[in-house]
């Protein structure tokens, strides 16, 4: 599988990464090498295998439905660049 610059820009946008034009080519070739690795994996014979969703053969531990957290909003809000009136503030999101 091969990649072009348009695909690299698209992936960068999805990851919210600002990629400079002069970085595109090196990123493209790095990503393409990663994809080749997947081509190698895809060549393996998996005919009689069930797909795994997780490398460990274990099932999920569950917890009972009980509240076990206290309000730590002050501490947490203090970590944010901006907050006001108990809210985290972010640049205006308009829909």
């Amino acid at each position: 599988m091969s990649l072009d610059h348009t695909a690299v820009r698209h992936i960068a946008r999805l990851a919210r990464l600002a990629v400079r034009e002069d970085e595109l080519e090196s990123l493209r070739s790095d990503l393409e090498r990663v994809l080749h690795l997947f081509d190698d994996l895809a060549a393996a014979n998996v005919d009689n295998l069930t797909p795994l969703a997780h490398p460990h053969d274990q099932s999920l531990g569950l917890r009972d439905d009980r509240v076990g957290e206290t309000d730590r909003s002050e501490e947490l809000l203090a970590l944010a660049p901006f907050s006001q009136g108990g809210y985290y503030l972010v640049p205006k999101v308009i829909e």
């Binding site: 901006f82 006001q84 809210y87 985290y88 503030l89 972010v90 640049p91 999101v93």
Partner: peptide
Amino acid sequence: KSVHDAFHAETGIDL
């Protein structure tokens, strides 16, 4: 939840 109208130039976030 995003709160749009309570703030001037920002959006407030309530998690």
